[in-house]
Amino acid sequence: MSLELVVFAIASGLAIVSALAMVVVKTPVKSVISLVLTFFALAVLSILLSAPFIAALQVIVYAGAILVLFLFVVMLLNLTQEAEGHDERPIQKLLGLVTVVALGGLLLGVTLKAGAPPVPAAGGPIGNVTDEIPILGRLLFSDHLLAFEALSVLLLLAAVGALILSKRRFD
């Protein structure tokens, strides 16, 4: 019963339970908090997968910035409760549930049965090396330089777009 297995069990259990909590809970604020917990558990799983940089990024960017943005929107717009469901459509809910279960079963079956693609003969740096951050840095600025620059333009566009879209019209 190695330590990795124990940590994996705890982290994946926490991730699944808080993801379920996010879907089930009525208040948006509690939804966001359960999603924060899910992302934290996913960060722990990423550390187990030899990706500590991605884990830190996940907490800093996702849990620490994007979800705070969600929380701000919820608080500033005062969205305290679930949308009023007076005209419930049970058929829609049933159809949705059936779709989810069917698709979920299909996905699980296909993923688990497919097995792993053949490993390249050279082996790889991830898992073999203690510090893979220099490798990531080198990859980012050599092979994926175009994507990196495009990403920075995209972020600028997103910031400007968000600013313009949410401005109040004072006419």
Binding site: L49, F53, I54, P120, P125, I126
Partner: peptide, 14 residues
Amino acid sequence: LAYARMRGDATGQM
């Protein structure tokens, strides 16, 4: 990330 770890490939993390 799981597949990247299995293959030892850093492109997955990218």
